[in-house]
């Protein structure tokens, strides 16, 4: 299906690059999500307007065209040159960070107003309320939608193959162009994306379970059971006693 040379020179490095781009742009998007998401809940109207504008603009523009724009247009306009991989990570982080900011904003808005009021009654500063009360309680609610977004991002990394970053999709295209036989390589790529997404989902479920235990919503499980157990939503049945109970 592929020669040892192709495997070593293109395929393996491509897989590794996909992993790298996924991780780096996810970290970047994560930071953007929190900064923009929190700013969108600001008391100051002008801050809300500016951060809201960021969200509206970057969720409504094509990530691919934006990537082309960073990779080809910006260097021409400003006479600077980015490494292609950097352009890809920048475009993905900015775009997916815009989606993520909506997750952060929504989860913060879902924290009961009574919690904010308790924070005011104890004379916390707005920043302390955010860090110690609102974000910790909003965090478990963010994880399932972040999981979705992370998988979207993983699959979105294949766009970088179009700005000459040799990720695993690039390697697949190369194989098709050279041998004309696209079935094995593209099938393999689909399976690989699925496997990566599955691993991400399991890790996110684990994080979600731990986060919920930390806000007192359910006991933590450890080890493999936590990794493969999945999370049942708001079951009225107590998992330990199997008895229904008032929550």
């Amino acid at each position: 299906m592929m020669s040892a040379k192709f495997f070593e020179n293109w395929f393996l490095p491509g897989v590794w690059l996909t992993v790298q781009i996924t991780v780096l742009s996810a970290l970047f998007a994560f930071v953007v999500s929190f900064v923009i998401g929190v700013l969108r809940t600001s008391r100051w109207r002008i801050v809300r307007i500016l951060s809201g504008a960021y969200f509206e603009i970057f969720r409504s523009t094509s990530a691919l065209v934006f990537m082309f724009w960073i990779a080809f247009t910006v260097p021409m306009l400003l006479h600077i040159k980015f490494a292609p991989m950097f352009s890809g990570i920048l475009a993905l982080g900015i775009t997916y960070g815009a989606y993520g900011s909506e997750i952060v904003r929504g989860a913060l808005a879902a924290v009961p107003a009574a919690q904010r009021e308790a924070g005011i009654a104890l004379n916390f500063t707005p920043m302390q309320r955010l860090r110690r009360i609102e974000l910790p309680q909003a965090w478990p609610e963010m994880l399932p939608p972040f999981n979705n977004l992370l998988i979207e991002l993983l699959k979105g990394t294949s766009l970088v193959s179009l700005i000459a970053v040799a990720d695993m999709t690039f390697a697949g295209n190369l194989k098709r162009l050279v041998s004309g036989d696209s079935a094995p390589i593209y099938t393999l790529l689909l399976v690989l994306y699925f496997v990566f997404a599955f691993i991400l989902t399991r890790v996110m479920r684990l994080l979600e379970r731990r986060a919920k235990a930390r806000v007192g919503q359910r006991p933590a499980q450890s080890g493999l059971r936590a990794l493969f157990g999945g999370v049942r939503e708001k079951s009225a049945i107590d998992p330990i006693t199997s008895a229904g109970g008032a929550k």
Partner: peptide
């Protein structure tokens, strides 16, 4: 905040921090 530090409140619904 300077004036508010003299005041404490207990709520109908307790409003403890669940985290």
């Amino acid at each position: 905040r300077e004036i508010r530090k003299n005041i404490g409140m207990v709520f109908q619904q307790f409003n403890l921090f669940p985290n």
